[in-house]
Design a protein around this nucleic acid. Structure first.
Lengths: 203, 203
DNA sequence: AAAGATAATGAACAGTGTTTAGTAAATGCA
DNA sequence: TGCATTTACTAAACACTGTTCATTATCTTT
């Protein structure tokens, strides 16, 4: 273990230090509410130092987006163990929504925040998201193959279910449920999930 | 028509001038992409003049949010003429989605952008939104009363349908459909709307 | 210990939202 | 009409922002 490897390790530690501080601050104040100077202050370095590890603010954002995608994967992926495709699909939906409710900031990062155009090239993150999405579509396909639905339009079924789940979470995350009393919102979300499952049963 | 009324008229014209320029710029560059200086330059006044008509940038945002709510109302409200509640509900949904697709910037303003807390007190806008939402819920209630559904849980039915429509539009607006080729996205949205209508039929 | 590479920073640039002090023009009143 | 007052406007400043760069300090190699 030479000096170069120690240097690399230290460099990686510094990147994690920056990312950790950034995530904490982004959670509290949102992407636009946090400045490079804030992050620098949190880790007790000068603002210019940040630029030695990340080329600009958006690159910090993308690094976090990647981590968010990983958290989401870990939150949802246990469902691969479920062999029955219908049960797997329902549990996938439940966990997708649960992830969004438990990590609104990460969900926001992944599915709501408008990202600069470079995000396309951010292959690491994109690949992770595509993988989870593909698994979801494959599960729907498995349901179709097993004749769980009358319809055989896998793509539209998957998209429709995703629309519901995403709509549910994002109305929550972006606080568009103020017409419902706070303590009823989660219950309403649960009931709605149960309802879409019932609707999907005779789809 | 005295001098005071002319002054009031001129004041209102100035406010409209600011709002018009702001909307145009917000559409092009988004809320955060536009500065007070940009708006001032567009109307050929100094930045400080803006503050004589709006107390800060967020107040311009709220004024636009109100106008967006009015556009949405005008886009959707023709459905009050439809007497059959089920047909009225379906057409409401179609027009809601159509509004979102045609005016992504306004939809964003109304349902996605994180608004400061004062938005609660922005009663004008809030009232308009609540009115349209209430009309939607009442239409669902009319369907329930007319035994169009097996379920009688009006609140959950309304919320579930809203989740789907909002999810559909906001995935579109915030560009989370890159895994589908561009030319197929609208078709997919149409198919999904047809599917949720079918699902709702035997709800 | 000297030379070279690396890490960190202070200061600056151009931008932001917002406030204030001051000017110039329009108005009300004598 | 002439003068005082109100109104409309703005230049300049303040405290921020993301980002860059010349300079300094530290660590590594010879």
């Amino acid at each position: 273990m030479g000096i170069v490897s120690r240097k690399e390790r230290e460099k990686e530690e510094m990147r994690q230090l920056i990312l950790g501080a950034a995530l904490k601050l982004f959670r509290e104040k949102g992407y636009d509410g946090v400045s490079i100077r804030n992050i620098a202050e949190a880790i007790e370095y000068s603002p210019a130092t940040i630029y030695l590890y990340y080329k600009d603010k958006s690159e910090i954002f993308f690094a976090l987006q990647y981590e968010a995608a990983a958290v989401k994967r870990d939150h949802i992926m246990p469902v691969v163990e479920i062999e029955n495709p219908w049960e797997r699909l329902v549990e996938f939906g439940r966990r997708y929504i649960d992830f969004g409710m438990k990590h609104p900031d990460l969900y926001d990062l992944l599915f709501i925040t408008l990202t600069p155009m470079e995000s396309m090239e951010n292959q690491e993150c994109w690949k992770l998201g595509i993988a989870t999405h593909s698994f979801f579509v494959e599960t729907v396909q498995a349901c179709v193959d097993a004749r769980y639905f009358k319809s055989t339009d896998t793509e539209t079924i998957a998209y429709t279910l995703w629309c519901h789940a995403h709509g549910l979470v994002s109305l929550f995350v972006r606080e568009r449920m103020r017409m419902y009393p706070e303590e009823k919102r989660e219950e309403l979300a649960r009931k709605s999930f149960a309802m879409i499952v019932k609707m999907a049963e005779n789809l």
